[in-house]
């Protein structure tokens, strides 16, 4: 029971990170109907920038908690802005000129861009994994029980609390942004019919750019969280995380933001429970197999609308 609870918390934390990345996939897919294959690498870039910013500020675990939190917010802002610059450029260079090209062109270009970003990070920062001492330690005991078999403790660490709280806050913020503001209205209208939206005076290009920027900011948040939680990153983390987050987006129903979050949680839980109860080695296989199963039996996802193919 305690083990289960512990894993549940781990799963929710990992799922929050996947969910944050998945939102970027789902928003871009919703608007221009393409898989931004480079999105996972934007997450990696976000994590890299966070690491560099933490080093540049000179942040160590010895700082007081309030100072640490303040500094982390600054790091987060830097990572979000710079990752947005990356994704904006990627969109301008690799996707925008291809709008209206044949079906596979943007995807192939996105794969090329993903390779470019990965290699860029590898060449500039080296291929070795970058480990760092955990910045935030400590946590709370949720349960403490002593039985004949030994002591059972369920803990939730400060990082996990920060991750879950930040994710919830960002979810609320983004839901409000999409449902309440004129920007969100423009995005939703582009999603429904891009041509009609532009006829009605919506700047489609700007809306798409903003969508990419929003997706990148969330990926940067996920990048910082991932780095804080696991303490080690390299240039290749974006690939696996990207595929899993895409799985999450599909599972939740592509185009739906609450769906992306839900899908992220499910994938995170599956991965954590699979490694906890079956085998660590095959946790990625479990997540990928989930993708195939979902696409076969539930192609529209948990919260998505069924796609109607028009001739």
């Amino acid at each position: 029971m305690e083990y289960f609870l512990e894993q549940l918390i781990n799963g929710i934390t990992l799922g929050s990170i996947y969910g944050l990345i998945a939102i970027g996939y789902t928003m871009v897919y919703g608007i221009i109907g393409m898989i931004n294959f480079a999105h996972g690498d934007i997450f990696m870039i976000g994590a890299m920038i966070s690491l560099i910013a933490i080093l540049a500020i000179g942040l160590t675990a010895s700082a007081s908690f309030a100072l640490l939190l303040l500094a982390l917010i600054l790091v987060l802002a830097i990572a979000m802005i710079l990752a947005s610059a990356f994704n904006w450029t990627v969109e301008r260079v690799a996707y925008k000129p291809l709008r209206g090209s044949f079906r596979l062109a943007p995807l192939i270009s996105a794969i090329g861009m993903s390779i470019v970003l990965q290699e860029f990070a590898r060449i500039a920062q080296g291929g070795r994994p970058k480990p760092m001492q955990p910045l935030l330690s400590g946590g709370f005991e949720l349960m403490h029980r002593t039985t004949e078999a030994g002591e059972f403790i369920v803990r939730i660490s400060t990082i996990q609390i920060i991750i879950i709280v930040t994710t919830l806050a960002l979810m609320a913020l983004f839901t409000a942004l999409i449902t309440r503001t004129s920007l969100g209205r423009a995005q939703r209208s582009c999603e429904q019919d891009m041509k009609m939206a532009s006829l009605l005076g919506i700047d489609v290009n700007k809306t798409i750019s903003i969508t990419f920027i929003m997706g990148a900011s969330l990926a940067a948040v996920a990048g910082l969280m991932f780095f804080l939680r696991y303490g080690v990153i390299d240039f290749y983390i974006g690939f696996l995380a990207g595929v899993k987050a895409f799985t999450a987006a599909v599972l939740g129903g592509i185009g739906s933001i609450p769906g992306a979050m839900l899908g992220g949680l499910v994938i995170g839980l599956i991965e954590v429970f699979w490694s906890a109860y079956f085998s660590v080695e095959y946790k990625d296989v479990a997540a990928f197999a989930m993708l195939a199963v979902v696409l076969i039996f539930l192609p529209q996802g948990l919260l998505g609308k069924p796609e109607v193919e028009k001739v």
Partner: peptide, 14 residues
């Protein structure tokens, strides 16, 4: 090398 492959893929698509 791989950086060049990636750039080539994007440019060819453009």
């Amino acid at each position: 090398r791989m950086l060049a492959v990636g750039i080539a893929m994007v440019l060819i698509m453009r």
